[in-house]
């Protein structure tokens, strides 16, 4: 468990003090994938570095697995071996092979070389690149480098993995692969993962809870599905509905708003509804996303003129337990 209590970090620059984090209170449970999202400069990089004390908080306490790291005399280096970390730019040793890179954290913690190499080879298999043991980072693609970085971060069998924009330098396909790998590792090893990112996609893909950071504060914190469906903070709305929540409606008249709150999995709800009612309908607005295999979001469809068909549609949705409401929309044109 990671507990941050009243954590603040102030940098003293020649232009005066800069608050990177202010009064951050956060509890991250064991085995959870926790996301911290915010725009550049919100303070999320500083916050994640406060967890392993790469940045020493100006005030507040950081407790990891019951050990208060911010109290004097604590063996920070020992504690860091229990907290793996990966970075946007991978930060691999460029003059060392993939295998040597993974051996590094083991060797500095006193593991003998043959044993370290054996463990490193296992890890290369775990992250899916067993054939790259003797390749240098310059010979690897971005995704492969990040896999080596994951293996390196896991070498000392840490309970916690900190990811600092770990997918921001990768293309969308590679990002998806790395996220899947992280999710698998979370399930297989039960490792707690803390991810900071500026991409909503990353949060949706793998996080169970999210904290939204804005201007060195936590603006909003909650389960990803809840925050996603109904962001309360201004910054949350801006992140989740980047182009503004309401698209322009092109039609007028009676419309049906359908809310997906995660109870419907992979069922083609709208398609089935139209088949059942024998009447096609026009989709005016749709914004749904899959989080953890469940659908979240909203759709607005134009109700057919035929009233019986319209009633049947609502009855179908009610039967499926999907929230819906009839609304009047004005033609914006």
């Amino acid at each position: 468990m990671i507990e941050l209590k009243g954590v603040s970090k102030t940098y003293y620059t020649k232009d005066g003090p800069v608050n990177a984090c202010q009064d951050i209170n956060l509890t991250i449970q064991d085995g959870e994938i926790f996301g911290i999202i915010g725009f550049s400069g919100a303070g999320k990089s500083t916050l994640i570095r406060c967890i392993n004390l790469l940045e020493k908080p100006t005030s507040g306490s950081v407790t990891v697995d019951g050990v208060e790291l911010t109290s004097p005399g604590v063996d920070i280096r020992g504690a860091r071996r229990n907290i793996g970390m990966m970075f946007q730019q991978f930060n691999l040793l460029m003059q060392k092979t993939a295998l040597q890179n993974i051996c590094f954290p083991l060797l500095i913690s006193g593991v003998k070389k043959p044993e370290a190499e054996k463990r490193a080879q296992e890890l290369l298999e775990l992250v899916g690149i067993p054939d790259k043991a003797n390749a240098y980072p310059a010979q690897l693609s971005g995704g492969q480098k990040q896999r080596v970085a994951i293996a390196r971060a896991l070498a000392t069998r840490p309970k916690i993995l900190l990811c600092d924009e770990a997918t921001s330098a990768l293309d969308p396909t590679t990002t998806a692969q790395i996220l899947k790998l992280l999710k698998d590792l979370n399930r297989q090893l039960g490792i707690t993962i803390v991810i900071i990112t500026h991409e909503m996609r990353v949060i949706e893909e793998i996080c169970s809870r999210v904290a939204i950071m804005d201007d060195s504060h936590i603006a909003e914190l909650g389960r990803v599905d809840e925050v996603f469906v109904n962001p309360k903070s201004a910054i949350g709305k801006k992140l989740i509905f980047p182009e503004g929540k309401n698209a322009e409606f092109v039609a007028s008249g009676q419309c049906l708003r359908i809310v997906f709150d995660g109870t419907t999995a992979y069922e083609p709800v709208l398609g089935n509804m139209m088949i059942e009612c024998g009447e096609p309908c026009n989709i005016l607005y749709a914004d749904t996303k899959a989080i953890d295999g469940n659908a979240f979001g909203q759709m607005v469809v134009q109700l057919p003129k035929n009233e019986t068909a319209a009633k049947r549609m609502r009855a179908y949705l009610d039967r499926k337990g999907i929230k819906n409401s009839v609304e009047e929309f004005e033609d914006v044109h």
Partner: peptide, 13 residues
Amino acid sequence: DGGVIEAAQSMGA
């Protein structure tokens, strides 16, 4: 690259 040194620090070097 300073990041490499930071990575080493994060590993407890």
